[in-house]
Amino acid sequence: MYKVESATKLADRVYEYWIRAPQVAKHARAGQFIILRLHEAGERVPLTISAVRGDTVRVIFMAVGKTTQELATLHAGDSIKDVVGPLGKPSEIENYGTCCIIGGGVGIASTPLIAKELKNAGNHVIGIIGARNADLLILEDEMQEICDEFYITTDDGSKGVHGFAADVLKKLLEERKIDRVWIIGPAIMMKVTSGVTVPYGVKTYVSLNPIMVDGTGMCGSCRVTVGGETKFACVDGPEFDAHQVDFVELMQRQRIYTGQEKVSLERFAEHQCRCGEGGHHHE
């Protein structure tokens, strides 16, 4: 069993959990993820490792599906049945010169570890975090502290630059040389934002989040097409060269179980109602 050390609500439907998992914490590197299973009837769900402190790892997630909603009902002191990790290849950290790291929505969760390791490797690190509105921005202070330069964007202009992270990135690319870019967020955001770096020929990494089962290269559920070849995101990734990724296929494959996910969620909501659970214990 893996104990939840703390559970905090960061924004609407967005939660930050610190989970005790010594074997993960000891070896975790930027860009890697865990798979957790809540209980005997649970599914295996991948979540990016957002930070490490002692024996604990941090995950940040949006409670949108059945499992993430159920996870969000856990309190500090509760336990998770299974946690395995760190999985996937670590980010390719080197001293490249100037690196820009972009997080969109809940994808911001992945940015601090990568930014920190890039910084430690001697890079000049530019951070951009973007969300639909100011209320959905997370990890602002943390990223501000790590990054040499830091930008905020909101779609509605309620904080920082009015617009998308892609707009800020484009402006930066016009002004100076950027050596590497990382983009982490929803698939559509990664697709659009990574398109910006193509004409500048800047190597750009994206962290892909397809559906997984084992997460160790055994099933191929997470297969993605990269540069015309089939890759397994769990072991060949999750980070890939953005300019080679077939994002349309990724988004299609993310929708395989839309119907079942709805059934599962409705069943869970019904159960929560009957048990009188509100699901707002974190405020």
């Binding site: 599914e43 295996r44 395989i256 179980y257 079942q260 599962s264 069943r267």
Partner: peptide
């Protein structure tokens, strides 16, 4: 392993 045959009692789906 995941008992998808017993979905939705088990959370893992299968087509």
């Amino acid at each position: 392993l995941m008992h998808a045959d017993a979905f939705p009692a088990f959370d893992t789906p299968v087509l």
